[in-house]
Design a protein around this nucleic acid. Structure first.
Lengths: 194, 194
DNA sequence: GTCTATAGGTAGATAGAC
DNA sequence: GTCTATCTACCTATAGAC
């Protein structure tokens, strides 16, 4: 074998990173195998030694990308989470889909994908919901917060003017802040004086 | 001229209807001119006597589809609006994207489209927001409600199990109901005893 | 306004050399 | 594991007949 075993792993990791960014920027349907392989400095034939098909790539991207999202929400204090929410509902996030949350960009295409892909999506999103739940009183609140945030960023991107985007993002951010603050907290000590 | 002038209008209307349904079901990027024209019983060459390009079609679809959405929210009493929200956040809506709200299905593709298309999107969505505002105390509340509803339906479609979908939809529906009921209404008379 | 024919490009995927 | 070459299919768009 001419390549050490860790080489395949590292190439796969680069494919998931580049593939995720391209899919989030241009859409998964518009991301060609050719373009993806060129982005990592390889040619299209090599793609199929890592994934059996393009749809298998989507499944792997969903797992990888939502894993990154989970990391952003996991194990935070209330203050830290507030900062994450502010960053999520910012014009910077709206302006950079390639570096942003995959739920806002890939959900509609995952909805049209295989059951396997949707199972991975559901599993990862439930883990994110469980993380948010630790800052809230009920699971319901976490679902509401996720829906709000994802919807707001996606809609803001489809708008033309900065003014409309900002009023939308600001409205949802204020509501998310209120949802965190209004909770009768079990770990109120860690929050300090706001 | 072999065709009466109203024929062009009616063909255009059929193209917008079929094109909207196909774009919502399969994605606009995956909707080919060939397939669209076949769906209305014509051939691809005829497409360009109605639209100069495929992207011009998207702009027309956005205007047409969001117009339908506006109609669903316009001029309702509080009770009627509650029924609309229930139908929006239903598994039936999640299961039938082709007949559903275009904001949930086309926003990510509109985000990657021309400024003109995004201006149409923004203009129509603001009109929808203004309609919802008449049932709420502030504009902010309408933006929050729209973000929640759109995000919830989109995420529910990307999930695999009916159980997860239902708990998500139910959570957001309860919150939307609460937002309507908790408002100090100016036209409380029309709501009757709940 | 719609048709057929076709241009020129790119898509996903496979075969076999190295 | 990666490369080159290639297959088949489909894409958007145009030209010219009816």
């Amino acid at each position: 074998m001419r390549y050490p075993p860790e080489h395949k792993e590292s190439t796969r990791a680069r494919l998931l990173e580049a593939g995720g960014a391209l899919a989030k920027k241009d859409g998964f349907a518009s991301t060609g195998v050719d373009g993806l392989m060129a982005a990592v400095g390889l040619t299209s034939g090599a793609f199929y030694s890592h994934f059996r098909s393009k749809s298998e790539l989507l499944e792997a991207i969903v797992e990888s990308e939502l894993g990154h999202s989970l990391d952003r929400f996991a194990g935070k204090t209330d203050e830290q989470l507030t900062a994450v929410l502010e960053s999520y509902l910012s014009t910077a996030h709206v302006d950079e889909p390639a570096r942003g949350c995959a739920v806002t960009t890939l959900s509609t295409e995952v909805a049209r994908a295989s059951v396997e892909t949707r199972e991975v999506f559901e599993h990862m999103l439930i883990r994110i919901k469980d993380e948010l739940s630790t800052h809230l009183t009920r699971d319901d609140e976490a679902w509401i917060m996720i829906s709000q945030m994802v919807g707001a960023v996606m809609i803001a991107r489809a708008m033309a003017s900065g003014k409309a985007r900002e009023s939308l993002l600001e409205a949802v951010l204020q509501r998310c802040r209120a949802m965190l603050d209004s909770e009768p907290r079990h770990d109120a000590a860690q929050r300090g004086a706001s």
